[in-house]
Simulated scan of single mutants.
Amino acid sequence: MTQAPSSASAVKPIIEVRGLGKNFVLKRSVFSRPLVQIRAVDNVTLSLMPGETLAIVGESGCGKSTLGRLLMRLIKPSTGEVFIDGQNVTNISHAEMRQQRRHVQLIFQDPYASLNPRMTIAQTIAEPLMLHNIVPAGQRAKRVAELLEMVGLRPEQANRYPHEFSGGQRQRVVIARALAPEPKAIICDEAVSALDVSIQAQILNLLKDLQNRLGLAFVFISHDLGVVKHIADRVAVMYLGKVVEIGASDEIFSAPRHPYTRALLSAIPVAAPPSHQRSRAARLHGDLPSPLSPPQGCRLHTRCPHARPECKTVSMKLDVEASGHANACAFWRDLPAQDGTEGVREPRNPKLEKLFVAFEAMAARSAQTVKGG
């Protein structure tokens, strides 16, 4: 007797990509044939489930933002397939893609550059309502007011222009516009990196609140691993266009497999004296290779302190564990144990340690004075 599928197995991903790749032509011949190409995204396979936050991290130039645009089909992939809400959108027409794009929206890094300076906030937010015919014309102003309140702005601000808002307020407007077509997923491309730290916290709390209230899924593209640790359910680590490790956020931060992931996490600064900080044994050597001619075999072998002769010739594939954690290092089980995955330990300097202790004592005395006064 065949058992009915469980509710967990019946859940389908909102976004799914299989073998995704993107080439950009840098130089053509006189006959328009490609002479020089750069492989920005190379054979990426991943999925985004309803209600989860998938973070994509890596160094600048690793292909994070290009992957985000491929997920929305803003740019057409060179290889592979893209599925949105179960439909293959790789080769559909522009008109069909416009309808599918209602399910997936995008928040850009610079909110000012992504807003039309000649349009009021009300016009900006009402545009997707009109484009997808979601709300009748007579009710759009009311819906715009609801969306503004939802993101922490006042309805009376609707008739202002983008230059009349601060950076954090503009990003709230962009979020309201993304919410207007009632999407199932939002791709956040460095959505808080251009904001002050205090404003970053407010925007992140807003995104988490909206996720809980509306059941949204997020693709969170970022280079700030401190932010990713607190917001992501799963993390995908990219290096030179490839995903080298993907898994649950807790596992990535507590027990990273791939040497590149270890190096990223060991670079997170920690506010502690040098003697209390953790090992920097995961540091990589040399500079990032040119993406025009990536190394053969494992692409990290030119910088990896644990590289073996096999790494120079054998192209590593993602090895999926029973837990779903996958990484592209075949020798990760032989890597030395790491004393924590966060923080950087510089060579011990007694003078710096004394200075740090003195600052702590001064801060403690100040706190006691304020409490007693």
Score class of each variant (00 low, 15 high):
Val244Arg: 14
Phe165Ile: 03
Leu240His: 12
Ala232Gln: 01
Tyr239Pro: 13
Gly167His: 11
Leu216Ile: 08
Val173Asn: 06
Gln171Asp: 12
Gln169Arg: 04
Gly168Tyr: 09
Val192Gln: 08
Ile175Leu: 00
Arg160Trp: 00
Lys208Met: 15
Val227Arg: 04
Asn212Thr: 13
His223Tyr: 05
Asp209Thr: 15
Leu225Cys: 09
Ile221Arg: 09
Gly241Glu: 13
Phe218Gly: 01
Lys242Gln: 15
Asn212Arg: 15
Arg160Asp: 07
Val219Ala: 01
Ile199Phe: 08
Pro183Met: 11
Val173Cys: 10
Gly167Thr: 13
Val243Pro: 03
Val243Met: 14
Val197Cys: 03
Gln202Lys: 11
Asp233Val: 04
Val228Met: 02
Ile231Gln: 00
Ile175Ser: 00
Ala185Gly: 05
Ala185Ser: 12
Phe220Asn: 10
Glu190Ala: 10
Val227Ala: 11
Lys208Ala: 14
Glu245Ala: 09
Lys208Arg: 15
Leu204Ala: 00
Phe165Lys: 05
Gln171Thr: 03
Ser193Thr: 12
Ile231Met: 14
Ala185Cys: 08
Leu216Phe: 12
Val244Gly: 11
Gln171Ile: 05
Tyr239Asn: 10
Val197Leu: 13
Ala180Asp: 04
Arg177Val: 01
Ala176Asp: 07
Ile175Thr: 01
Glu182Gly: 00
Ala194His: 07
Leu225Ala: 10
Asp224Thr: 04
Val228Tyr: 08
Phe220Ile: 08
Asp233Tyr: 09
His230Asp: 14
Ala191Thr: 03
Lys229Phe: 01
Pro162Ala: 07
Arg213Lys: 15
Ala236Phe: 04
Ser222Tyr: 05
Cys188Asn: 05
Val173Ile: 15
Val227Gly: 09
Leu240Glu: 07
Ile199Thr: 13
Ala201Cys: 06
Arg234Val: 00
Val228Cys: 10
Ile231Tyr: 03
Met238Tyr: 12
Phe165Glu: 13
Glu164Arg: 11
Arg170Tyr: 11
Val228Trp: 11
Gly226Phe: 13
His223Arg: 00
Val235Ile: 14
Gly215Pro: 05
Arg170Lys: 11
Leu225Gly: 01
Ile203Pro: 07
Arg160Glu: 14
His230Glu: 15
His163Arg: 14
Val227Trp: 12
Val235Gly: 03
Ile186Phe: 06
Lys229Asn: 14
Leu206Met: 08
Asp233Phe: 01
Asp189Gln: 10
Ala185Phe: 04
Ala178Thr: 02
Leu240Phe: 12
Leu210Ile: 04
His163Leu: 08
Leu207Gln: 03
Asp189His: 06
Tyr161Gln: 11
His230Pro: 00
Ile221Trp: 06
Ala178Tyr: 02
Met238Arg: 06
Ile186Pro: 06
Arg177Ala: 14
Leu225Asp: 03
Ser193Phe: 07
Ala236Ser: 08
Ala185Thr: 06
Ser222Phe: 05
Val228Leu: 03
His223Pro: 03
Gln169Thr: 01
Cys188Val: 03
Ile186Trp: 02
Lys184Ala: 14
Ala180Thr: 02
Phe165Val: 07
Gln200Ser: 06
Lys208Cys: 00
Leu216Asp: 04
Gln171Cys: 12
Arg234Met: 00
